[in-house]
Design a protein around this nucleic acid. Structure first.
Lengths: 205, 205
DNA sequence: TTTTATTAATTGAACGTTCAATAAAAATTG
DNA sequence: CAATTTTTATTGAACGTTCAATTAATAAAA
């Protein structure tokens, strides 16, 4: 029944799944960077990845599934960055550990333009989608309890909790303000401000 | 040419424009609160405001215009809150002025659920729409230069700028984290943390 | 042969916008 | 004052477009 001009069909290769998933997640972030989530249609994403639209439903079940997978990918990168900076620290004093967490949150993988825009879209969307909201809260709590644990090695309960709350907010705020300015994000300045806050909280025991 | 069952037509009353604009802006925020910007269709908004879809284009030129007007309304409320808290302060010391700015940013008009969700949608959308981006930057700069001016009455240039940058980020971060938790936003705790930061910066001259 | 991989074409729902119709109210004219 | 024209306010059906999702077709690989 189909009308065809040429008898050219795609050449299936085995083991394409992980490659296609990666390609489509990357294309999703790029599309969001270019036109925003609302206009990041599956046709646009598929074209950018060099595949047809059907493949998105095939591997991710649909657009929603692709977006969630993209966000999980970014969260995975953040977790990796935290491990990387933690392991690169000489000793494991609260001071060094806090600095590592701060550095990780401003890691190159997190301040990339397309990643930052995807984060913003994620926040706005997560408010109406329970599945994304859960993802968001898990991440939120992890940052908070990480910070809390480190502060608690030096400060009493309440002070540690408040210090963690403040530092978590400062990190998010610096990151948000960095994301919202169109021109470059001065990461080092943001890191320096967060370091200062962390150090002051540690000193006030 | 229209097919009618009943001979009932709307009863136009003069001077409806400001009333309709207010109704539609309110309905927009409620719709965003309920289903998010993407699903806040003009049909839904119009129904919620108790008017027909055509009226949105009539008064706002379209959906985009309505969203921008909604955001301008929220920004206007923020400006009003800043004036309110500034005027309610006994003297105009840097300390009191900073506290007033902090209070205004956590004013009831700004921590309302529908307002917070609209803010989030605004941030995500502003990244791809120059008109909204300008609106966003004007607001950003106003907060920063307000803070900077107050800190500068006590601190030298560089320290004032860093203190302002830090406090602006802390305010935004506390606000963001408050917006993202589904259950209530502990405004007083956020205000207390911001106060503490402001006070510590003022003391470190 | 079945499974995996993929595409092009198609479908149907949803959406924003436009527009003719309608009438009260206000302004203008005779 | 009465008759008319214009302005303001409003509706809701119709239109055209855009999407996400589905489907039939295709073939290499297992």
């Amino acid at each position: 029944m189909q009308v065809k001009i040429k008898e050219i069909w795609a050449v299936p290769k085995i083991g394409m799944e992980p490659i296609r998933r990666q390609q489509l997640i990357q294309a999703t972030m790029e599309a969001i960077d270019e036109v925003g989530l609302a206009d990041a249609t599956i046709a646009r994403i598929a074209h950018k990845a060099g595949v047809s639209t059907g493949i998105i439903s095939h591997y991710f079940g649909g657009k929603d599934g692709l977006f969630e997978a993209t966000m999980r990918h970014i969260l995975g990168d953040l977790g990796q960055a935290i491990r990387k900076w933690r392991d690169s620290t000489p000793d494991d004093s609260p001071h060094d550990h806090l600095h590592a967490i701060i550095r990780a949150n401003f890691d190159r993988s997190q301040v990339d333009r397309s990643v930052m825009k995807t984060w913003l879209a994620f926040w706005a969307t997560s408010m109406h989608r329970p599945d994304l909201q859960r993802l968001q809260r898990v991440n939120d709590r992890r940052l908070f309890s990480n910070l809390c644990h480190q502060f608690h090695r030096v400060l009493p309960h309440d002070k540690a909790r408040n210090a963690a709350r403040g530092l978590a907010a400062l990190i998010d705020g610096l990151w948000l303000r960095g994301a919202l300015v169109p021109d470059g994000f001065d990461t080092e300045r943001a890191i320096a401000l967060a370091y200062r806050y962390a150090d002051e909280q540690l000193a006030a025991n």
